[in-house]
Nucleic acid binder design. Structure first.
Lengths: 159, 159
DNA sequence: CGTATCACTGGTCACATTGCCCAGTGAATG
DNA sequence: CATTCACTGGGCAATGTGACCAGTGATACG
């Protein structure tokens, strides 16, 4: 579960140059190829590295508008609402949060006008009592993981 | 910018089996290898595919708690606050939202108790007027992109 | 109507990398 | 002291890669 310094270097290197191969990594890190391979296998079976799927930019797909919707759910309707939201492609993520029957929903849309359509589709469901939406303007820190990986690696070094 | 059906199939296939190579993709899709290669190059230079970085699970790194903090920023302090938050490893993402001086901040922590430490570090900065935090309990729809890709590919098909 | 452009096909080539194997070493464990 | 484990450094066959090429069909353009 905890990662050591070498694991951290592997992940960071992989994050910076995803196209790199195991052999080149072993050269850069100064360890044997088999070691890198074993570490990678372990990190993946640990679940630390979930995968290497392509990171797709919704904006480049024609969905430049991002918004968050906070939904208040009628008691007992949670499962239905989840199933409903899972069918909406513009719903990129759904989280349940503290506060009874609250959900947070990450949305994208083709334009501000299109966002209205998306929101209508999202909230057009019986179990949703109330919804409030916040539009994202800028993204000063895009979703990142490297600093946390370095932190985790440094922590384990102290152990 | 718009993707066609073949682009969509490439992305979906890549998302499902990231380890797959160009050659194997061309076999599965029934097109020539060069075509897949050209499409992939184009998708990447378009910015539709940003990269293939490893998807790291913060929970597996020892940070199982996720939270969102809504920050209200003092006028004119936005840039300073961004710089401050960028230095906190537990800040995975930072967005500015509608509502003057509002930011939304995605956090992780080692535990609920540790979250207090993270929040203290986040809000312990002059430009932040007020902060409210919501803890994430479940993640019924993890960050996903495939449905949107399929949608975008279907849309362009109609064109 | 001809022509240029473009994407795609199906093939080749040399080269690098992969997955898999092995024996040996050093450290930590029991 | 014996065992286990991670790592090293090496070797092997098989595969994939990047780079080409000529030919073809469709589309857009003068």
């Amino acid at each position: 579960m905890a990662i050591d310094h070498l694991d951290g270097r592997i992940i960071v290197l992989l994050a910076r140059e995803p196209r790199i191969g195991v052999l080149e990594m072993s050269r850069r890190l100064g360890v044997a190829r088999g070691t890198v391979q074993a570490r990678l296998d372990r990190l993946q079976s640990n679940g630390v590295i979930r995968g290497f799927g392509p990171q797709v930019d919704p904006a480049a797909l024609g969905y430049p508008v991002t918004a968050f919707a906070t939904l208040q759910i009628r008691q007992g309707q949670g499962a239905d609402v989840r199933a409903h939201l899972a069918t909406v492609p513009e719903v990129l993520e759904l989280l349940t949060t503290t506060g009874s029957g609250d959900m947070l929903c990450r949305l994208v849309a083709r334009s501000n006008a299109d966002l209205q359509r998306v929101i209508d589709r999202v909230v057009g469901f019986d179990g949703i009592v109330r919804a409030s939406t916040t539009i994202v303007m800028e993204n000063p820190v895009p979703l990142r993981i490297i600093p946390l990986v370095e932190q985790a690696a440094a922590d384990s070094a102290g152990t």
